[in-house]
Amino acid sequence: MPESGFRRNQLGLVGWLSGGRYGIERYAFTLHRLTGLAILAYFLLHILVGSSRMLGEETWNSVMERLDSPVFRYGEFLVYLAFAFHALNGLRLALTELGFFLGAPRQPVFPYTSSVRRQRPLFVLVMIVAAVVVVLGGYDFFFAHPVK
């Protein structure tokens, strides 16, 4: 780190990526951002693959053949995991960022409580729903339509 970096003492990406010793919502924050990027990357790949159809049926078939491998199938399941988390956590964020489930401001009396703790049951609930979605999807991926 250059001298000015030491002086600036900015946590930068490390502060953004690591949840540190803070609560679960700070980890959810990081995961939400990362899964968002992963879904975006998948989306770009998806467009790219889909557009290969424009190059004719043969190209399309060869691309599809190449993608029909366990790596991509498992990769797709990872995207599905990311989607389940991102969608349900996003629902929680949409609600809390509009002030729902946070409670009203109150006199801070020690030991303090906070809006973050008050919305935690909602976080637990959406994570349970996400787990159910993942289990159902996992069944479909691995048992109903197993990887060949």
């Binding site: 803070y22 700070r26 990081t30 960022e97 946070l102 906070s114 809006s115 973050v116």
Partner: peptide
Amino acid sequence: RCHFAGACSEVCPKGVDPALGIQLSKR
């Protein structure tokens, strides 16, 4: 730009709950 990571409210030594203030201002 706040995405409700909530760490601010956790560490606040006076129970100010800044995360609540920011979400309510968004609302």
